[in-house]
Write a protein that binds this DNA or RNA. Structure first.
Lengths: 353, 353
DNA sequence: TTGAAAGCGCTAACAC
DNA sequence: GTGTTAGCGCTTTCAA
């Protein structure tokens, strides 16, 4: 142990051949005698040779590495993304460099810088919203880049996300069809495109149904940022807001939330007030997290195409990496969601009798 | 865009100085005139110079990278680990290379190989259980390595994990104190040390309480592996097993589970059979996942020191990386858990009246 | 203080 | 087929 790493030179010296012959023999080039190749392979094996990826990358000009920038791995949706992307990249021979930004703009900028320094061949990023200039620059400077889940409408960057707008529309409509006339939506308090999209879809469904609320039915959940923003979403803040709503007196027929964790808080607030789901209030979630089907009552929610997004994004990225000259128009795709109806929205009454 | 990356040589040429003066000026070495340094810095800025980490690492012999090998990022406990480790490493200037193994022995071996090729300065790994030989070899060949969460008792490797044994003991004892006389434990069907440790703790508590079960009270949840093992744990398999138990007739007073997701399945099976928690059956979980406190009833569970494990492991790793010669004995630490008592185990009756 | 030369480990171009 | 030379971008000797 602790012995210096074996290099091509060591093998070459030990066998009395040139370094370069060893290189060709080991990388499978055909300009090598069968016997020589065999001897070299054997010796490499004997010495325990392991190729040095760094050196290789340096001379080849390709890091054989993808960068993945995530705001919060504890978000189950992003966790799925991480798995999928790592796997898909690995299949194509790429290693993954992971950077966590925790919704920090500085972290976001630093991440772009780090990726540039390492010269990753491409990057997949869930950007911290706000100023995306640095991502645009990274892209311009030759590192292909695909944004995940959060779009910068103003920037000409590839984007693979979720069709939150339609998902929210569909779910809201479902609640309306179930008889709800007064609805509200509890949303994350981040200035990101998914929130904007869900809000739009929600409002559109209301408008179509001819429902006009006096006060704004979209409520932002005031999230208390703790030690670290990377904490799993907490149902607690939504719980508090839901309590306010319940106590406020103007109890809505249905409550829609931006993510399933919020639904947990809503459930509790309602239960504590002696209200029942779905008899008194319908509830619709977003994300179809693993616990959703096992709540009491099981939660109606919008399932996100997590795996699809991961593979689609990697494939698009690989394509961009290949054809770095042909400037295809940037692609902005929103993959479809799936409404999963469960008991939290099932009711006897319906406007569609 | 698409222009070749700016190098030290470019700056040197542009300014008529030597490459290495530029290097020293930019890396802050003091053997450079103040004026020269200023000019160089300005020119670097103007040209948009970005250091090439690969080249730097190659010559420095240090990748400035840590490897993290995880079986399944969708496990919330591991997700926390990822966040913590990435952050802690970054603070010390290290980038993170992430590898996902999905409980595949081949993937596990491949991961070790990849880390070796990249020459990471150290590795943190949640090993796929079974044969850990390759991790031992990686360690022997000069890459410091700390195992996370899962120990190889037979191998002389550093290990930072959870004191599952005591955690399970404490939780079980709590259930016994609550009046339970017949208990069972639903466990993951993986041959990993956490399962073994929890089982040991559970059994010890029973023995101490003088409880002897006829049939083995430890039940392995037959997990159906789907498309990918990286799926979030599914409550479904535990649900099925719990159904069997309920229908079997020998209903236990209390059910303990190896992770909170299993508790979701248990809750449902009990509810569907018209049984109430905690009145008819006490339930204890493991993990204190974000939803645990919001179930109905709130779940008594064992909280894991996720963040602690991450930081402790990184710190130990950094220490190993520093003192690569002084062969301190390997460290195997199990950090303490915390029993979080909630309503799922609260009952009037108690043996401790 | 600065420059020239050497080398990290590897691959590519060109000779032979 | 095989060896020689050159170079990826950077840092570290060692002279000047």
């Amino acid at each position: 142990m602790e012995s210096r790493r074996v290099t091509l030179k060591d093998i070459a010296k030990s066998l009395g051949v040139s370094v370069n012959t060893v290189s060709r023999a080991l990388t499978g080039k055909d300009s090598v005698g069968e016997d020589t190749r065999a001897r070299i392979k054997a010796e490499a094996e004997r010495l325990g040779y392991v190729p040095n990826s760094m050196a290789r990358s340096l001379v080849l000009g390709s890091a054989m590495t993808l960068g993945l920038v995530i705001t919060n791995p504890s978000n189950p949706f992003y966790a799925r993304l991480i798995s999928t992307i790592e796997q898909r990249g690995r299949v194509h021979g790429y290693s993954l460099m992971l950077l966590v930004t925790e919704e920090s703009p500085d972290g976001d900028r630093a991440a772009a810088e780090t990726l540039l320094r390492w010269g990753v061949d491409g990057a997949l990023v869930v950007p911290v919203q706000g100023d995306g200039e640095h991502w645009d620059r990274l892209n311009e400077s030759g590192v292909p880049l695909v944004c995940l889940n959060r779009d910068f409408p103003a920037l000409d960057l590839d984007f693979i996300g979720v069709d939150y707008e339609h998902g929210a529309y569909e779910a809201t409509r479902h609640l309306v069809d179930g008889g709800a006339r007064t609805l509200c939506l509890l949303e994350e308090d981040l200035p990101i495109s998914p929130v904007a999209d869900r809000t739009t879809g929600f409002r559109r469904a209301l408008t179509e149904a001819g429902i006009e609320a006096g006060t704004d039915p979209v409520r932002s959940v005031p999230t208390r940022r703790r030690e670290s923003l990377a904490l799993p979403w907490e149902p607690e803040d939504a719980y508090r807001l839901a309590q306010d709503i319940v106590r406020g007196g103007d109890l809505p027929d249905a409550i829609m939330v931006g993510n399933d964790y919020f639904a947990l808080g809503v459930y509790r607030a309602l239960t504590e007030a002696g209200l029942r789901v779905p008899e008194d209030v319908l509830v619709g979630g977003f994300g179809d997290h693993p616990f959703a089907a096992y709540l009491n009552p099981p939660l109606t929610t919008v399932r996100l195409p997590a795996a699809d997004i991961g593979t689609t994004a990697v494939d698009l990225l690989l394509q961009r990496m290949k054809g770095r000259d042909d400037h295809d128009a940037t692609e902005k795709r929103r993959l479809p969601t799936e409404l999963v109806v469960r008991d939290s929205s099932r009711t006897g009454k319906s406007t569609m009798t």
